[in-house]
Write a protein that binds this DNA or RNA. Structure first.
Lengths: 417, 417
DNA sequence: TATTATTTTTCGAGCCTTGAAATAAATAAA
DNA sequence: TTTATTTATTTCAAGGCTCGAAAAATAATA
């Protein structure tokens, strides 16, 4: 916001404009790009030439269009020119995915980690190891691709430009510079590394997945998910809004009942105490299962009972739907999100949640039908976070195509003496 | 986001950069501007020359700085070059304020209106009339000033770029193009007209007022106010975030109690049912006063009783503080606002509200002290909305100084033949 | 009076977009 | 077969912008 602008910025922006157009509208000719972007033919020629230089675009045949005239020379994106690495850190393991510009997965790599509680250095070493393996595989499979970025998605608030992980409770960290640790582990990786929040990435991924399915998103979209915990994200114009402490969308602790149950967070009546996994398991009468076989098994059993029509399980989800409805009202009231995407088991169990949710919203809908958010459901499941990390790298590239270097020119034959 | 960029954009942005620097750092020389902005001396010379052409900046004397060398020629903003009109529409009257670029008030004008319920045209006529009078006064007082913008603050959600007033319940409007109506009333007003939301403007004003007092704001700030109703606003990087339907920050209907009292909005347990004027008056046992003397008198009586130490009134505010605490947790959880500004009687009665509010936040603060929002209090009272409307005009000008035309050049004497 | 230090302006170079004109490559008409 | 027409793309000069270096302006000091 406070740096001078110069002609390089203009160029960057217009290159991005052309690249985005080609990405969104598939192969097309320069004329179409000119009309679609509002740039002049001459400029499009120059911009396309630069994108071709950088290997991001290629000419792909001519097509004669409707009768006579010079045929159009189609321009095609070259997705394989760029590879990005998306990593996800969970409590037990590290997953890495390598994908090209279009999201085609080139390689997956994962490893369990046994990093001790409170030791980010150990975890960074594991991340480094998995990334190195994945990178080697990519180098083999696509030796000419440009490795653009590594994004590491992490469960915990990531603060501002420094990307410090403020407080990863489950990992026992506090104000950790995970990015620096990972960079130190990967001295030979010559690309930017970014640490991002996992729930925010899931939000971003579902947003784009729905857009690919033809959903037109409003400018403000919220995402709420529940699986091992309750979290979310907030998107403004398709970009993550992470807030002052990187905690935007952390709505698990939205208070919806002044005198509700106590919560680990230090207050009471939080959304998580109504729709989190433990409360749901408890309300469905499955505490014993959880105690003997673990939380995951209890959720699986809850799923079975729901599908079998068990009344306790159904009632538990009904009450959760009501609470979720209050959260939807809260989120949409504060942020005016025009759409709220539900993910995790909120999507899986939509049929059991929606009656309660709709009942809570019904009164408001009747008064202001146009103002209420549309409820949609995530489609990516457990893949969401990794896909989101990929997407954030892709956005960075679409914003600044000049980050991709020019291809080595074929050497011109020297004139004979 | 999707228009081509060209060198005019570069110029606009760098002009804005210089103008902002001069605005923030007071009179200073070109060299200082160059260092402060990161622009090169030559460019600063050119940019300043243009700002002088447009009458926004003037040279104001030389100052010899520390010994020898050519003295610095100080540059000063010319606040009186630009005048903006800020209007506020309430249920009973229309207020207009004319102010120069620095916020010095040149004129105030107001008139009661008796526009019938559901008749925006009648109200637009009154607005037009008041604005015309104010404009005439300004033309008299400052004939050379450039009239940059008229901003009309309105109680109701203002949607997107079309600025339609979606639903002004108290006025009985629905999807009204107030801007078009006002423009039609003012055919001789040759400046942009904008319709904006009143609570958002109050938020913007308090934000800038606190910044002027030296408060450093985090990137996300929320504003909650209560007077005749409960409303608010959301600011991201000092700009209003108005959301998908222009309703962002409409937190009066944030649900904080699943089984709370029914609310006009069609659901139950909304924040407004705890901290709105009617509930407070009721809780303090002042229903009779409200019934006989009206709501305003009841609030005045409540104020008296609070200051007299009346236990019922104190208890009512204590409970409201608790509810407000839940709202603060909700807002900061969803948006991760690093600061929450309280306005209206929430600021006036801060001493009675804070104990309950702090108690509600206490548990959370203990666990994550760095993550909790700072609570501040608005200082502008009833002036907030008008000041905010002024501020939004000022921001528009600081973003694009080229909107101010060049001063007429003093005619150069023609060379004799 | 000559020198030095500091600020400001001037000037040419290098990018960038633009609009007009030229070129390329096909079909339709003669 | 040759010529005109149509459409797509490139070339080229012009104008705007910032930048770096050199020149000019201006006051204090030797």
């Amino acid at each position: 916001m406070n740096a001078p602008a110069d002609s390089a910025d203009v160029r960057r922006r217009n290159l991005a404009l052309v690249l985005r157009y080609l990405d969104a509208h598939g192969p097309c000719a320069r004329t179409e790009v000119a009309v679609g972007t509002g740039l002049v033919h001459a400029t499009v020629t120059a911009l396309v030439a630069e994108l071709i230089d950088r290997g991001l675009v290629r000419e792909a045949g001519s097509v004669t269009s409707g009768g006579r005239g010079r045929p159009r020379r189609l321009l095609r994106l070259v997705p394989e020119r760029v590879v990005v690495l998306a990593a996800q850190v969970s409590l037990e393991s590290v997953h890495v995915m390598a994908a090209d510009f279009r999201g085609r997965v080139l390689h997956r790599e994962s490893a369990p980690h046994h990093a001790p509680y409170g030791d980010p250095r150990a975890l960074a070493a594991v991340i480094g190891c998995v990334v190195r393996t994945a990178e080697a595989a990519v180098r083999d499979a696509a030796p000419h691709a440009h490795l653009a970025q590594l994004a590491v998605a992490m469960a915990g608030p990531v603060v501002g430009p420094s990307q410090l992980v403020a407080a990863a409770i489950d990992f026992g960290w506090h104000s950790t510079d995970l990015r620096a640790l990972v960079v130190a582990e990967l001295p030979r990786l010559h690309c930017p590394v970014d640490v991002v929040n996992d729930a925010n990435m899931a939000a971003l991924a579902e947003y784009h997945a729905l857009a690919a399915d033809g959903v037109r998103h409003p400018d403000t979209v919220a995402y709420i998910k529940a699986d091992t915990g309750v979290g979310g994200g907030l998107l403004v114009n398709g970009r993550v809004h992470s807030g002052s402490h990187g905690m935007a969308g952390e709505i698990g602790h939205l208070p919806i009942a002044l005198d509700g149950p106590e919560c680990r967070c230090g207050t009471r009546g939080c959304l998580a105490t109504f729709i989190g996994p433990e409360p749901l398991v408890h309300a469905a009468g499955l505490d014993a299962v959880a105690a003997t076989q673990g939380a995951e098994a209890a959720l699986a059993e809850l799923d079975r009972r729901l599908r079998a029509g068990d009344p306790d399980a159904t009632a538990a989800l009904g009450a959760a739907g009501d609470a979720l409805g209050a959260a939807v009202l809260g989120v949409s009231g504060v942020t005016d999100a025009g759409e709220i995407i539900l993910g995790g088991y909120l999507a899986t169990w939509a049929s059991w949640l929606m009656p309660g949710l709709e009942a809570r919203l019904a009164g408001r809908r009747a008064l202001a039908p146009d103002m209420q958010p549309v409820i949609t459901f995530g489609v990516l499941g457990g893949e969401a976070t990794l896909r989101g990390a990929f997407q954030t790298c892709r956005d960075a590239l679409l914003d600044d195509p000049t980050s991709v270097p020019a291809l080595p020119r074929a050497p011109v034959a020297a004139p004979l003496p």
